[in-house]
Design a protein around this nucleic acid. Sequence first.
RNA 1: CGGGGUGUAGCGCAGUUGGUUAGCGCGCAUGGUUUGGGACCAUGAGGUCCCCAGUUCGAGUCUGGGCACCCCGACCA
Length: 569
Amino acid sequence: MRISTLFGRTLRQAPAEAELASHNLILRAALARPLSAGIYSYLPLGWRVIRKIEAIMRDEMDRIGGQEMHMPVLNPAEHWKETGRYFAIGPELIRIKDRAEREYVLAMTHEEIITDLARRELRSYRQLPFMVYQIQTKIRDEARPRGGLIRMREFLMKDAYSFHEDQQALDEYYPSVYQAYRNIFARSGLRVIDVEADPGMMGGTGSHEFMMLSDSGEDTLVICSQCGYAANVEAARANKKDRVGEHQRLEALKPLEGVATPGVKTIQQLTEFFTLPAQDFLKTVLYMACGELVAVAIRGDLEVNEAKLARALQCSDLRLASDEEIARAGTVVGFASPVGLKNVRVVLDDSVDGDAFIAGANKPDTHLRDVHYPRDFAADAVADIALAQAGQTCLQCGNDIEMRRGIEVGHTFKLGYKYSEAMGAKFLNPEGKEVIVIMGCYGIGLDRLLAAIIEQNHDDKGIIWPKSVAPFAVHLAALGVEDAEVSGVAEKLYLDLMSRGCEVLYDDRDETAGVKFNDADLIGIPLRVTVSRRTLDKGSVELKQRTSRDFHLVKLDQAIEAITQECTA
RNA sequence: CGGGGUGUAGCGCAGUUGGUUAGCGCGCAUGGUUUGGGACCAUGAGGUCCCCAGUUCGAGUCUGGGCACCCCGACCA
């Protein structure tokens, strides 16, 4: 490709909107251009990178028996109603109508469609297992697109779906996808860690996320450097340290005692008022969960993990209750507690044991001393619903846990029977009995992966592409193109390399050396080859790796060979 | 959805108490001089000042409404 005719110009200054390094470089290096919030067009340079990433994915998915296919973005709403997701998912699922007022959705993922296909095609256990995948556009009306290609409303995803006879067969297959994913990221030049994850709206029995560690990541991760435990904070379990102090055990009961606490509402204020540590208080948070008011009680030094709570309640429609809803339940914000609350489900974090706590009295400006569970209130459920925090220890090895930020680039799920059951995807087992098929699903965001690779591979001059995904293998720069010998040698080199199957970006423009070198550094192709008066006087061309500051001369008659070797290495 | 910010040439920005023909840098075009790390000179093209309504003799500037984009949070695979 000749830069003189390449569609898309590099920018000296990035648009002010770009804050992330990847966002900035994607714009400056002319990889992509914004169309609307979270919606981008790829320019030729960026699209070549996507194609490279796709090729790696196809190779790895095919290797574990995947079959590539393709499913529509425009889906009848009916399928999404069958699984209930039409109602369970909020406005990020775009719902539209056609000319005949028929309801459609724009697919944000394809479980419904593949499961519909599976129930039509699948008859016998002999057809199992199978895995199909596609590389497709997904549409999600994100509340807040951000970070350039990191969080988009229209994005590219490689999604894969596997079907198995039973849980055991799924469990046996799952690690091969995990390994394929590790291979994809390794081959793309991205260092990732995998963490235990919350399946969220996808449902299912187990899931892992592949995370690139980055301070600008949206996800918080809990990591134990000792034993390797790693989890998204949404799913993370950690050792809630035992309480220390004067609080009495249940054996030494004191009666409940009311205390006037005018205006003392937060745990922070309570610790100051009583001069006691936060863990001596019982914090009660009221939620509306699927239309029902729920009181969630947890030790004062801990925070509620809403993902865990949603799972404990088996309800994904979770939000904090409004003041009116709380008043209707007969309590008041800042002074709530499960003690004496009527007609409200109580979920208790397992950190709350038989010790004495100070809790709200469900009336203004009053707290209760010596609240004991289960003496003074009942819980409908006791579960781990606490958010893991820095300072806590690892449940597996006792080491201190670490909190890091990460960008999610891939996610694998054991879906279980959620979709196959809802849509009736069944087969006949060897005994001739009809059974429901079990599923797994696996996704990687291509745009986000591209952005993540740049986040991890750049310097102050520009992108440093790993060879495997670089848009071209060689950046050929001719300095001083009005010199007939320079342009002649460069032209010939360009054509010869091309004929050898080497992908060359040829800077044939009439620009100064500085402009060409800076563009080469910005675009970030692994090998730079320079032809100039200076190199020709030595009968040579100059080779330089993007990763290095050093360069060396290669004689003209050996240049093709040397460069081709780099190309294909 | 809540909070904050920004909309003026392709990009980055300036534009005074409302006052003539809206500027600067980069980029772009043409010509010339240059040529190993974002050259220089000259000439030139390029603007619904986000949109609508209003106030005013007069609006980029003031008022009201709307829209778009960015950042933080909430939400989310």
